[in-house]
């Protein structure tokens, strides 16, 4: 690490696992990354790679009793969230760390009016009176650019469109002016024109409120549009981590390269065959040895794949898992 100011959030060798019938599954396997103030860090990967579990672990929201954090640190403003008391975590969650989830319908209570749900945040975290909380909530709706906010306050979630609901969820997440927002697939359920609206809104609010964002997505396009840094995860591990431009221009891990080459873009010739990554996305297992991507590629027995590859900074700010088969220093 260079002598810059301390990052807002530092995740260090975080390990989370789930107790299942098949034994202990490691969903997050020594994940490390950091988020600087005012920056957006994207976590990208395919289903089951552990990106959502990582996010859940940061704020200790793993499903109980199956999920457990087994090791590592999450330093947030000088506090280790892994070891913080439940009361402290409760205060931070929804307070200094806001959360946005994929499906806004499940984040909102269908039987309560919007106004009650948004003002509840102010009543709990800021101990405001009913009236003040209601006014503050109306102001939040205005902030997320919901037309006629006074009127919307008395609506139920089902009366709003998907895009409007996601704005409400953003309003909830930002109510206490958090310094960090964790957004898990915030636009995945939305149409592309609505997605563009929401991403634009988040970027503007980030500027206004100087917050940091952790954006979890499977969509490399969304990453390219919005993130300053990218963390690429595969089978519970970070395989590569770099600034966004650097990662797209100079991907060093075979998995990152494979991912980038599999997306059809508007510039790829029609009906040309796309690059594919053979096999399937790895299932999580209890074993933590070897290079997981080599296992997908069927390179299980060859030498050098039994040990877990190191994770090193190969150029300033560019980290990669240095498996002899998967790490390709730029030619």
């Amino acid at each position: 690490m260079s002598g810059e100011t301390k990052p807002l959030l530092e995740v260090d060798k975080l390990i989370s696992s789930f107790e299942t019938e098949r034994g202990l599954l490691r969903a997050v396997d020594q994940v490390s990354f950091s988020v600087s103030a005012g920056k957006t860090v994207g976590i990208v990967g395919e289903s089951g790679c552990g990106k959502s579990v990582t996010a859940m672990s940061l704020i200790r929201l793993l499903p109980q009793p199956a999920g457990k954090i087994l090791g590592g640190h999450v330093h947030f403003k000088g506090k280790d969230l892994v070891r913080a008391s439940d009361a402290e975590i409760h205060r931070i969650r929804g307070g200094d760390i806001g959360m946005i989830f994929q499906e806004p319908m499940s984040a909102l209570n269908p039987v309560h009016r919007i106004g009650r749900q948004v003002s509840e945040v102010f009543r709990i975290h800021k101990k405001m009176s009913k009236k003040d909380a209601w006014d503050a909530a109306t102001e939040m709706l205005q902030l997320v650019r919901i037309p006629a906010p006074e009127k919307r306050m008395t609506d139920y979630p089902h009366q709003l469109s998907g895009g409007m609901r996601q704005r409400i969820v953003i309003a909830l997440a930002l109510a206490c002016r958090p310094s960090l927002v964790i957004a898990d697939e915030p636009t995945t359920a939305l149409d592309v024109t609505v997605q563009a609206q929401i991403l634009d809104l988040m970027a503007r609010l980030q500027d206004e409120m100087h917050m940091s964002i952790i954006l979890i997505t499977h969509d490399l396009g969304v990453i390219a549009e919005t993130c300053d840094e990218v963390v690429v995860m595969y089978a519970g591990r970070v395989v590569e981590r770099a600034g966004t431009e650097e990662l797209f221009e100079n991907p060093l891990h075979a998995y990152t390269r494979g991912l980038l080459a599999s997306i059809p873009t508007l510039d790829t010739p029609s009906k040309s065959l796309l690059n594919t990554i053979p096999g399937m996305v790895a299932a999580l297992g209890e074993h933590t040895h070897g290079c997981r991507f080599c296992q997908r590629m069927g390179r299980i027995t060859s030498r050098g794949t039994r040990e877990r590859p190191g994770f090193s900074e190969v150029s300033p700010g560019h980290w990669v898992e240095t498996c002899p088969h998967c790490y390709h220093p730029s030619a």
Binding site: G163, T193, V194, Q197, A224, F248
Partner: peptide
């Protein structure tokens, strides 16, 4: 035009100019 402009570009250096639509379908 709006639909095409809304596709996230996969090149962080060449972001498309967005045409943001108001409202929903």
């Amino acid at each position: 035009k709006a639909l095409i402009s809304a596709i996230p570009a996969t090149d962080p250096k060449h972001k498309r100019e967005k045409i943001l639509l108001e409202g929903d379908v």
